[in-house]
Nucleic acid binder design. Structure first.
Lengths: 221, 221
DNA sequence: CACTGTGAATGCATTCACAGCG
DNA sequence: CGCTGTGAATGCATTCACAGTG
């Protein structure tokens, strides 16, 4: 989130790149895909950086953490770099199963968004605590009861849980997801979720973004 | 945006706190409000930090940039600190006028979310490029034509623009907002918006969050 | 010659650790 | 004694600048 994402995980393994760097890799993939559709075959770090509002040095530094992908004097081969980065990000050939908890307005919006499917993120199970919503079919998926979340997670081999429930039940839903084996969560509820250090959480908190803007506006009005 | 939010603004004025710090101030306000409803009148930096997943030192450091609010041996008076921070954030006594461009699923979800109104962010104008949507009433607001965005911005004295349109038209809508005098924008489209350095942009990019999670899952599977 | 990849320098944010206060 | 506020230390991310390469 913005940037907003805390990292207090203590992993022994290999030194991972920073959150910010990983987020930028996604940006590079997007821009490379766009360049690909324009039949552009080579791109320099400078040209890749410009439309993203970044610097050439930053791109080279980010990429250098994962290997050497460029050619001196020529730049990067668009298709090749795209493929390498999607592999690094784990979105090249495989798909990820996503569960959605909370089918309110926001949940429905997430289900309707095409971008996820294109990148290999597939909603496999959706649940809601409201009995009147259970059984409804949205985007081809039947809304399940919140009680069945654990078994749905196992049944569909869910990798990522998306929490779009009211703040009061967010931690409980999170606990259920974690207990069922989910190790990655996107949280839209305005609360810090307590999870074991083996679980990754990303917070999407729009109210915080608005308040940040209010701060800057109030100072420069 | 997430941290994801880049900052490449060159402001002469007083040294502003970092984006991350401002975002945390919002978290403090939230937690203080919660403590207030529990009739807790004093809180130490440690007790404030814990439920937010932060450290006591960080809270004291953040607050110290804006003044001295605590009492040695006692901690912070909940109500007083809450009031001071909302004032600093610019959300204490005033309201902010928000315009929404793009009334799709996401836009509708944003309109329906109560949290914004509570914090003083009021949707005043909504527009969509789809003629079949123009004239519809959502949450008490009539959908206007996208062409009328500039005059609506002026008419309603819009402070903040929210872009929830397809990626193809995001930059154009952004340009319209900026030309109409909007100096703060929340962008949900997966593209880097080009704006003058006097305008603040926050990116909300869910696809990037999901890909970051995929990266970590792929490494620790 | 145009560009990459990377040591070195810089700049920031976070953490430590403690003097000083109520 | 418990806690704040803050210099000092640390740790990271970004930027600089350039040797090396196709």
């Amino acid at each position: 989130m913005a940037s907003n994402n805390h990292r207090h995980h203590h992993r022994a393994s290999t030194a991972l790149a920073s959150d910010a760097c990983i987020a930028r890799l996604s940006l590079y993939v997007r821009e490379l895909a766009r360049l690909g559709t324009q039949r552009i075959s080579y791109v320099s770090s400078r040209r890749l950086a410009e439309p993203l509002g970044l610097t050439d040095a930053q791109i080279r530094r980010d990429l250098s953490q994962f290997g050497q992908f460029g050619t001196s004097g020529r730049g990067y081969e668009v298709q090749r770099l795209h493929d390498r980065l999607t592999t690094i990000l784990g979105v090249s050939d495989r798909t990820w199963n996503v569960a959605l908890a909370g089918v309110g307005n926001l949940g429905a919006a997430l289900l309707a968004y095409r971008g996820f499917r294109e990148r290999g993120f597939l909603f496999r199970a959706i649940v809601d605590a409201d009995p009147s919503k259970v059984g409804r079919v949205i985007q081809g998926l039947t809304v399940g009861s919140a009680q069945h979340l654990p078994e749905l997670v196992k049944q569909h081999k869910i990798h990522i849980g998306v929490i779009a429930v009211p703040v009061e039940s967010a931690q409980a839903v999170c606990d259920q997801l974690v207990a069922s084996g989910v190790r990655a969560i996107v949280n839209f509820a305005p609360i810090h979720l307590e999870v074991p250090s083996t679980v990754w959480v990303r917070a999407m908190d729009l109210a915080i973004e608005l308040e940040s803007l209010a701060f800057y506006l109030a100072r420069t009005a």
